[in-house]
C-alpha cells in the first residue's frame, strides 16, 4: 500500500481542519447574538429585582462588579438558575449561593395592610421600580403586577404594615399532563 501513511495523515489533517472550522463556526454563531459589552450580557441574566442584597444598589451595578471579577453567587432572588446561567456565560463552574447575602425564596410581592398604613410616604422613594402608589396621609398600595418583591419598602415603614407574600408560580400548562381515561 503505497501512500497509505500519507493518505492517513492527509485524512487526519482534513478531519482536524473540519473540526476546527466547525468549532470556529459554532463559536461564531453562538457569539453573534451577544450585543457588545459583558456587563450588559451579565445584566440580562440577573433577575432585575433591584433588591441590593448583593451589596450593590441595583442589578446593573452588580453586573458591573461581576464583570470586574466579583463572585457571581451573591444574588438570592436569582438563585441557582441565575448562577448557572452566569457560570455558563462566564465560562466558570457554578457555585452555591453565598448564604451571607440571603436565601433563595419563592417569588414574593409586597402587600400593604391598609388598616395599619398611616400614609407617611416613606416607602415610596424606597421602591426601586416605583410600584407603590400613595400620597401624604392617603392610603398607600402596592401595584402587585409591578412589584419585584425586593423587600426594600419594608424597612422604612414606621408602622411595619408592609409584608411580603409569596405568589403562586404560574401553573404549568395543563396540556403538559393529560390523564388517560380510566377504563
Amino acid at each position: 500500500m503505497i501512500g497509505a501513511g500519507s493518505a492517513l495523515l492527509a485524512l487526519a489533517l482534513l478531519g482536524g481542519l473540519l473540526v476546527l472550522v466547525a468549532l470556529a463556526w459554532e463559536r461564531a454563531l453562538t457569539d453573534a447574538g451577544a450585543d457588545g459589552e459583558l456587563t450588559i450580557r451579565i445584566d440580562a441574566l440577573l433577575p432585575q429585582t433591584q433588591c441590593g442584597r448583593c451589596g450593590h444598589p441595583g442589578c446593573l451595578p452588580y453586573a458591573r462588579a461581576i464583570a470586574a471579577g466579583e463572585p457571581f453567587n451573591r444574588c438570592p432572588p436569582g438563585g441557582a438558575s441565575t448562577i448557572a446561567a452566569l457560570a455558563e456565560l462566564l465560562g466558570a463552574e457554578p457555585r452555591p449561593l453565598d448564604p451571607a447575602h440571603g436565601q433563595e425564596l419563592p417569588r414574593r410581592v409586597a402587600f400593604i395592610r391598609e388598616a395599619d398604613c398611616i400614609g407617611c410616604t416613606k416607602c415610596l422613594p424606597a421602591c426601586p421600580v416605583d410600584a407603590i402608589l400613595g400620597a401624604t396621609r392617603q392610603l398607600h398600595t402596592v401595584i402587585a403586577e409591578l412589584c419585584t418583591g425586593c423587600d426594600l419598602c419594608v424597612e422604612p415603614c414606621p408602622v411595619d404594615c408592609i409584608e411580603l407574600i409569596a405568589v403562586s408560580p404560574t401553573p404549568p400548562s395543563s396540556a403538559a399532563e393529560r390523564r388517560p381515561v380510566a377504563t
Binding site: 500500500m1 501512500g3 497509505a4 501513511g5 500519507s6 493518505a7 492517513l8 492527509a10 485524512l11 482534513l14 478531519g15 473540519l18 473540526v19 466547525a22 463556526w25 459554532e26 454563531l29
Partner: peptide, 24 residues
C-alpha cells in the same frame, strides 16, 4: 488521497460536520 476508494472516510467526515450543518 492515498486510498483507492473513499466512501467510508467521506461518510465519517460528513457525519462529523452534521451538528454544524444542522445548526446552519
Amino acid at each position: 488521497g492515498g486510498y483507492p476508494d473513499g466512501v467510508a472516510f467521506a461518510v465519517l467526515l460528513m457525519n462529523l460536520a452534521v451538528p454544524l450543518i444542522d445548526r446552519g
